[in-house]
């Protein structure tokens, strides 16, 4: 009997497991770095659009383009953040930090959208402020996420700003306070109307947002995971 062979096999196996753990850890760290870079880029783009808007005022709305707000980038960021949440967990400090920054970008984007749409009357944005929770107190949030994902894919011009209701971010809590959103999740605010609470099917959601009829649709919608 050669017991050293048993020990050596254990050490090598443990080393392979350790290597797998290390690679996974490094890739997750790279993902976090990617999200951070994307958030930084988005932040600069938002600031640029805001500055452009302030420079031009309402003098030349067309100069802002038809898509002044970075909806695609925000959606892409949301998908990446979702992957990071899955891999690292929703309680991971880095994920929470990225989520805070993302929520802040969403609020800034939302405010800019409000400002632009007030001055440029030709722009008639349709948007939803969606409040969810990952803390186990919102059984319907996953289903609601699926409905909103589908709507966002069907109507590319529909903006969905999703916020974790319990996120410890003063700007978000101020928004929640201003919009008088109570802790009955999921909750939605469509185009500045009063908050609506509870799960809504696709049909109910389409009834709730009659403005959707004014938006262009994609020929075929595809589904992805959505927070």
């Amino acid at each position: 009997m050669n017991f050293s062979r048993y020990a050596l096999a254990f050490v090598i196996t443990a080393a392979i497991f350790g290597t797998a753990f290390y690679i996974t850890h490094r890739l997750d760290a790279q993902r976090v770095a990617d999200i951070r870079t994307a958030e930084d880029t988005l932040s600069i783009d938002l600031l640029s659009t805001q500055t452009q808007f302030e420079l031009l005022g309402s003098l030349d709305c067309s100069a802002l383009g038809t898509q002044p707000i970075l909806s695609d980038e925000l959606n892409s960021l949301a998908a990446r953040l979702s992957v990071a949440e899955q891999n690292l967990g929703t309680d991971n400090p880095q994920v929470v930090q990225l989520k805070k920054q993302y929520s802040l970008l969403e609020i800034r984007d939302y405010l800019l959208l409000q400002q632009i749409s007030q001055k440029c009357k030709s722009l008639k944005p349709v948007y939803i402020l969606y409040f969810y929770s990952n803390s186990g107190d919102c059984a319907d949030c996953a289903r609601t996420g699926d409905v909103l994902t589908y709507l966002r894919q069907t109507y590319p011009d529909l903006r969905v700003y999703s916020f974790d209701y319990h996120l410890d971010l003063s700007a978000l809590q101020t928004l929640i306070h201003l919009k008088k959103v109570t802790n009955t999740l999921p909750a939605f605010i469509v185009n500045n109307r009063a908050p609506v609470y509870g799960f809504k099917t696709l049909e109910e959601m389409q009834t709730l947002i009659p403005e959707l009829k004014t938006l262009a649709t994609t020929t075929s919608a595809t589904s992805t995971s959505s927070r």
């Binding site: 996974t24 992957v83 589904s223």
Partner: peptide, 27 residues
């Protein structure tokens, strides 16, 4: 059934970011 969202084929992501790089995958 409960959401009314029609069945569709998920669009695969081509970027490495969306690949499954869990520890189990490497093992």
């Amino acid at each position: 059934q409960s959401t009314g969202v029609p069945l569709s084929v998920p669009t695969p992501h081509v970027e490495w970011f969306f690949l499954n790089t869990s520890m189990m995958t490497f093992v």
